[in-house]
Each structure stands twice: as C-alpha cells, then as structure tokens.
C-alpha cells in the first residue's frame, strides 16, 4: 500500500468525520434548542397546554453550537449509556437503533449486490444487440430513470396490493409487523432504481470503451466479439463504474428512505425521521454508523482499483 494513498484516505476520513459532527449539531446553531426541548418536554408531559404566548425566531447561536459539539463528542464516547428523547421520556437507544440499523443495512447491502449484478447482466445483454435496437432500449430506460423514486416505490406497493387482490398471493406484507420481516420484495424494490442507474452508467462506459483503439485492434486480430466484450471491455468499464460507486450508494440511500416510509418499515432512516429532529446526538451517531462501513468499502474499492491500474501500467 502506497504511503500517499494512506495519507489521503486518512485525511478524507478525518475531514468527513468532522463534517458529520458539524452538520449533525447544526440545529443548535439556528434554533434555541435547549429551551425549545424543555418546552416540548413540558407539552409532552401535559404540564403545558397553551402555547400561544410562546414566540421564537431563527437565531445564530455559536455558543450553544460549540457547546453541543462538545456534548455530542461526549455522547458518542459514552458507551452503552445512550438515550434518546421520545414523547416525554428518555428511552435507551440500544438495542432499538441497532435493530433498525441492521434491518436497513441488510436490505441496503443485499439490494446493492442485486443491482450491481442486474446492471451488469442487462448491460451485457444490451451490448450484444445491434446499435439501432440499443437506441430504443436506451430511450425506454431514459423514461424509467427519469421517474422519481417515490413514484416507483409507491407503484410497486400498489402493484403488490393489486396482485394480492387478483390472485390472493401475498408477495410481502405490505406493512411490516413485528417478527415477520419480509425479505425478497423490499430488496427487489430497493434494487429497481439503482439497477437502472448502474445500467445506464455501465452502458455509457461500455459504449465509450467500444470506440477505443484497443477494441479496434482486437477486432482486427480476429478475436471473438463476445470475448472482447467480456474480457477486455468488461474490466475497463467496471473500473469506471466503481469510480462512481459513491453516487450509486447515495442514490440507494435515498431510495431506502422512501422504501422505509412507504412500506412502514422500522429501519434506521425511519428512526432518524421520527426522532432525529429532537435528538441531534442520535442523528450524528446514526450518520457515523452509515459512514464508517461505507467509507471502508469505498476506500478498499479505491485501493483495489489503484493497485490494479498500477499493475496494468507496470505490465506494459
């Protein structure tokens, strides 16, 4: 592993961690969170019913912000004493957050794997087709890709209900209860749009590769068309896909948020949505929990690509 790579990654890691800390506590900069939370607690505990006399404005409270930053750091290193505020009480954060987190992450990881696989298969199937047919398919996928995630996921939910009404075949409990967490359908729905995204991106890089000189050379040498596609173009296109994997990940996260809300799943996104606004420390912690594994993944992908290209250059 080269030294500069390690230094670069470490700097990136520290800066992003700092960024999460700064963003997570941002509400304390703009609102009088402390007094507001006290009032909220009084309302929730029924000590206060008339709120008409209360008035507040947007503030710029640097002192409270810095104070909250320090408090958040303490909170993060507090081990298992963590709590969150919900409806007038402080509840222990674990294992609630952990359950939500592992549910979301298992869906997210599985659907990322599925969508990378589906994207690759679809792209190769398309690349075999003649160029004119490809243009039609691209047009179709342009429309699908333009649809917002909320629309696609909502339609998927209605589709499940419709199939159930028609055939009595319940593909998936449309709203998850306790204990019966569905597996296949959420993963399927969550991987729909990322697949299209990956497909679009891969197709572009494949077509870019197609015009490269080395493909011409390989064709000239009489190498089989499929072998050029699978062996040579595939590798190079994958490198450029994984260079953009961050975008895919973010896109999948946004989809996850919509999925959890529409299908009423108790995942980490829903947890942040429900309790995040009054528990900024909890938000910061959850963001770290998403950031850490993702960062490790991205960095290792980057490292592999770097090593791979270095070897290619060396071999030449």
């Amino acid at each position: 592993m080269s030294k500069s790579f390690v230094r670069r990654s470490a700097a990136q890691f520290l800066l992003t961690s700092l960024g999460i800390l700064l963003i997570g506590s941002l509400p304390y900069l703009f609102f009088n969170m402390k007094s507001q939370l006290e009032i909220l607690e009084m309302i929730d505990q029924k000590n206060l019913s008339n709120t008409l006399f209360l008035y507040d404005t947007i503030v710029f409270n640097v002192n409270a912000y810095v104070h909250q930053l320090i408090h958040t750091i303490e909170y993060l290193f507090n081990g298992n004493m963590l709590e969150y505020y919900a409806r007038g009480r402080n509840l222990p954060l674990f294992p609630t957050l952990w359950d939500a987190y592992s549910l979301s992450m298992s869906y997210l990881v599985a659907s990322l794997i599925v969508s990378v696989g589906a994207g690759i298969i679809l792209t190769i199937m398309t690349m075999v087709l003649p160029k004119q047919t490809r243009a039609y398919i691209k047009g179709l996928f342009f429309i699908v890709e333009s649809l917002p995630d909320i629309f696609v996921i909502l339609l998927a939910q209605l589709g499940v209900i419709w199939i159930y009404k028609q055939t009595d075949l319940l593909l998936f409990n449309v709203t998850s209860g306790f204990n019966d967490q569905a597996i296949f359908l959420p993963i399927f729905i969550l991987s729909l749009l990322p697949s299209v995204y990956i497909y679009k991106y891969l197709l572009l890089s494949f077509e870019e590769e197609e015009n490269q000189l080395y493909v011409e050379l390989a064709k000239g040498k009489g190498i089989n068309r499929y072998r050029i596609l699978m062996d040579h173009m595939f590798r190079n296109a994958m490198v450029s896909l994984f260079n953009h994997f961050k975008g895919v990940f973010l896109f999948a996260l946004a989809n996850l948020l919509m999925l959890e809300l529409i299908f009423e799943m108790n995942g980490v996104m829903k947890f942040i949505y429900k309790y995040g606004a009054v528990n900024t420390e909890m938000v910061t912690l959850s963001l770290y929990m998403i950031f850490l594994p993702a960062f490790v993944l991205f960095t290792s992908i980057e490292w592999f690509i770097e090593r791979w290209t270095a070897r290619q250059v060396g071999a030449r």
């Binding site: 990136q12 992003t16 999460i20 973010l250 996260l253 996104m269 993702a294």
Partner: peptide, 10 residues
Amino acid sequence: GLANTLHYAP
C-alpha cells in the same frame, strides 16, 4: 473533505 459528508445520507 467536509462537503463529502453530504454523500453519506440523502
């Protein structure tokens, strides 16, 4: 580097 934070949540 700080702005990179925005890549880890929607």
